[in-house]
């Protein structure tokens, strides 16, 4: 029996805000597109379990991309990016995701992201409710201060280890040790992008007072958060979902801030609930 995975990888070139990116993505499955964003300072291998999940890929085309500057997606092709400090903004992040969905000619995609991907899911629902069938905001909140730290790039410490061990506590002790270590390993690879990503996560993303503007009929929002997440706690996500029209919140016991990467077997149970909840809101609002 062949041990070649059904997951395939591709590059697509696109332009966003005058910047040209050659974007790498992995995909598997058929059906409604499910576009997946990794967490800050990481890459698309966090979705390795979902990409090979037979049940979900039977109904959804799972697409997990590397954001530029992460994994196999290089920094911009047409800019001297090394002469500037990388600080991700909500505007550019949102514009990139829409441009990617356009470049892949995706119809009615569901967007799912975790952590800074969970936060941008809320931005997408607010700004582009007609472009997405719905969003799954994993470990997201209206506001998540406190993680834009100089320690991620301090030249007197081992940045790879500070990033990797600095996020270790975001995972639950119940998650399989091997999967937690894979996540640690990914984080040892992304220190240069991590801090710039967190500029969006902890500084530029702030939807306090604006959640009521999200059109939860056109673009339903389901939020899922693990109980071991010390950055965005279940209380933060529940409060956020409560202020969004049709917003739903699913609490995830015994899992942390990287649910798809630290424990896909546990996460998938909640994900199936979340996908069903999105379909239910869509059916109700016609």
């Amino acid at each position: 029996m062949s041990r070649i995975s059904p997951v395939t990888g591709h590059y697509v070139t696109l332009e966003v805000d005058g910047l040209e990116y050659k974007v790498f993505y992995l995909e598997n499955g058929t059906g409604q597109p499910l576009v997946c964003q990794h967490t800050a300072g990481c890459h698309n291998h966090q979705w390795r379990g979902l990409l090979e999940d037979d049940e979900i890929t039977a109904d959804y085309r799972v697409i997990a991309y590397d954001l530029p500057r992460h994994g196999k997606s290089d920094p911009p092709e047409n800019a001297e990016w090394w002469k500037e400090e990388y600080k991700l903004t909500a505007d550019h992040y949102v514009n990139f995701i829409v441009a990617l969905c356009d470049a892949l000619e995706l119809e009615d995609p569901i967007f799912m992201g975790s952590s800074f991907g969970g936060n941008v899911a809320l931005q997408l629902a607010l700004r582009h409710p007609d472009r997405f069938a719905g969003v799954l905001s994993v470990e997201g909140a209206d506001y998540s201060p406190g993680f834009y730290l100089d320690w991620w790039q301090h030249p007197h410490a081992n940045a790879a280890q500070v990033c990797a061990s600095g996020v270790w506590d975001l995972m639950a002790p119940q998650s399989p040790e091997a999967d937690r270590w894979k996540t640690w390993f990914y984080y040892s690879q992304g220190s240069e992008a991590f801090k710039g990503d967190l500029h969006f996560y902890s500084v530029d993303h702030d939807l306090r007072g604006r959640l009521g503007e999200i059109d939860g009929d056109r673009c339903p929002v389901v939020m899922l958060t693990g109980e071991y997440d010390y950055l965005t706690t279940p209380e933060d996500s529940a409060r956020t979902a409560g202020e969004i029209k049709n917003g739903a919140f699913i609490a995830m016991p015994e899992i942390g801030h990287f649910p798809m990467s630290e424990n896909h077997a546990t996460f998938r149970r909640y994900l199936l609930q979340g996908l069903q909840a999105l379909q239910d809101v869509k059916a109700k609002s016609g």
Partner: peptide, 11 residues
């Protein structure tokens, strides 16, 4: 198996 927020110095 520590309860949430007792599982590490960052938490």
């Amino acid at each position: 198996v520590p309860a949430p927020m007792y599982h590490g110095i960052w938490a």
